[in-house]
Nucleic acid binder design. Sequence first.
DNA 1: TAAGCGTGGCG
DNA 2: TCGCCAAGCTT
Length: 346
Amino acid sequence: MPAKRSSIADRLLAWYDVQARALPWRALPGTPAPDPYRVWLSEIMLQQTTVATVRPKFAAFTERWPDFAAFAAADDAEVMAAWAGLGYYARARNLIACARAVVADHGGRLPDTEAELRALPGIGDYTAAAIAAIAFGRRAVAVDANVERVVARLFAIRESLPAARGAIRQAAGSITPDARAGDLWQAMMDLGQAICTPRAPKCLLCPLAQDCDGRATGAPETFPVKAPKRVGPQRYGTIFWLERGREVLLVRRAPKGLLGGMRALPTGPWEAAPPGLAAAPADTDWELRNATISHVFTHFRLICALAVARGGAHETAGEWWPIDRLDEAGLPTLFLKAARAVRREG
DNA sequence: TAAGCGTGGCG
DNA sequence: TCGCCAAGCTT
């Protein structure tokens, strides 16, 4: 390995030995490797999700389901409800499927090779490499958004994403040490979170400043170059609040697609124009409220009207849920916003 | 390859 | 207020 390449790993690992963040799923340098179950769970939770958001959910999940056997035996609805608020709900569905595959096909233990990990539900290239390196000490190359940014800057890679992925991956491989690869990637994540940040990197604090071609250009923040993002459309919908006594009607959304498998308030279609009372869950006197609920999803912005009906017994498909225990239903954020609006307006 | 898929924080 | 961004995966 060229001298510059090996010195990057050495410098970063030395920095990590001193600066590593203490995290509930992480073994600090010099301590035994962490429980693969905890590494797996944390890696899935951390996909596109910040450490601050994951912390309390990780604590709740590991307390309730401490290992693969417990998780594989969990009730689907309980897992989905526990995941509520984390977003990207396919992760929760895949989590269940993965735990059951681990128990059924791997004797209750996570396999320790990248290829076998990659074959499990919800585990892609990055997560397979991260688990192999962090939990099993393999020399795997785990390229997440942090590593992508740090490496693109270190080597001043001018090709734009996503086309640059190949070059970045190759550069990352070139600095991967035979030992402590897992620590190197975790170090890059800490570095990317605290120092090599997207907008205004703190190069004066960076242990790799002397190695960094991007810094040498005078504009490290311009790496990696990204293709312009397409702006999402605006869509309109209606959220239905149907009360019976002190209960409200909830439904279970279709198993796949947006908010798939989650408990929810009934909604109509989400379209380019406000759908009004189309697809109402009951034929009754709906009161359309003035308040609207706006919510931003990854690829579109949603503005929902709120339709409220109270009193009388309605024959509807769904689940009547106590209003004063709505926080236990595991509703995605969109519906929590609607519930708050109803509470506000009475 | 590109699109679909949540949410909260930050500048 | 708004756009960007985050320990990505699936189809």
